[in-house]
Amino acid sequence: MRYAMVIDTKKCVGCSDCVVACQTENNVPIGYCRDWVVESLKGRYPNLEIEIRSERCNHCTNSPCVRCCPTGASHYEKGGIVKVTQNECIGCSACIQSCPYDARYTHPDGWVDKCTFCIHRVKEGLKTACVSVCPTNCMYFGDLDDENSEVSKLLIKRKFKVLAAEAGTKPNVFYLI
């Protein structure tokens, strides 16, 4: 099993619903976030192009954060979800430095926090909070090892990219372009 998220930049309107849904679902404190929206603009008026992306931890198959964690708090869960065990984390921030996506932050209570792919929901057979809320339905979650899953099919059908491919982290969040 290999959990992945596929995000369709052609449908995303950048409304940030994913951000606030994550915040309430996961009790992320005000002033912090586990996901965020990036807009990149190309061209000169009136020949323009925008790409809008909802970004988060890429749950990399080759995660620098897991590798560098001195206590083992950062670890892989079933399906490749990268997770931090809160009471094993000493807040040293090595993982924050190692992450090419800037996906982690230090929680005011001391541990390092980030996207969990809503593991508590996934275990119940639900989709992540961000995927469930998205008004444009531009986000998909599923198992890449299952060739019949929605995410697998989309990656066969559509052109896609990953972020910071050059870092060699083998990210599991894919952007349809």
């Binding site: 409304c15 940030s16 619903d17 606030v20 849904a21 469930s132 809320v133 998205c134 008004p135 339905n137």
Partner: peptide
């Protein structure tokens, strides 16, 4: 079944 950011917030 899907609220917008304002409704979620």
């Amino acid at each position: 079944g899907r609220f917008c950011p304002r409704g979620t917030g």
